[in-house]
Amino acid sequence: MTILETSGLTKRYGRLTAVDHVSLSVEKGQVFGFLGPNGSGKTTTIGMLLGIITPSGGAFRMFGRDGGDELHAARRRIGATLETPNFYPYLSGRDNLRVAARIKGVAEDRIGEALDIVGLTGRQKDAFRKYSLGMKQRLALAATMLGDPELIILDEPANGLDPEGMREVREIILALAARGATIFLSSHLLNEVERTCTHVAILRSGKVVRQSAVRDLVAGATVASVASDDLAALRRIVAEYPAATGTEERGDRLFVHLADDDLASLNRFAHERGVTFSHLAVEKRTLEDVFIEATAKDAVGGAA
């Protein structure tokens, strides 16, 4: 079931096109990462989905609904934050959640449970302004989970957190996903996304340049990292190797892009020509490699 679907969603500010024909599709149960460099249009896109920014063009559907009042009703089934955690600084953590619960029409007795999940029960009576950044992010997560939303939209949930805070946030997100919620989160922290998300879309200058399952994105062509005492000979035989699609040299290593994943064949080929590897390893492609590749200047118009 498609939970969220956008088609040609566009936002222009004068001559600047902040979001340019973004088409996304998020299925039930996915943890969907929305990646992009700063200023690529992630927050603007989410703002349109949440009804606080009016789109200049395109359309979107949530839970299969579109248009005015229907979308408004659909939004009550969503828990979301945009940019920093937005709360009343003079209200306590609990009172801030009371405001959110009243707006969402959720019974106030659910607040305790949400505070418990994010580990803020002990500090619930303290004013929000006294919270650390990590606690603020956790309170935001508590607010989004009130009323068991089917879709949770988080904008940079780990922004500015220390590794410990990031781990806590990651665990809460995975726990929410385990409870059956679909999660849509934006981030520029690739490592975090790779660890939490099942699917990603990469945004560059307002355009979606990649969209797929994380597994499929990081799979694909293999890169072999090789080294030898005779670097010149190594260069020569790699250039002759039929399955090599390209090479890069970094320090004393040669990174060979292979059309297949047969490292044994590469090793045999070199050995037969009198070159012995002092190092041979597979370099796994990370989301970072894909991201850098996709957001490089010449990548626009790639798989959209």
Partner: peptide
Amino acid sequence: SWRTARQNVIDGLSK
């Protein structure tokens, strides 16, 4: 300034 107007709308109030 606290962006709570925005959050109220995100939480489900219409404008």
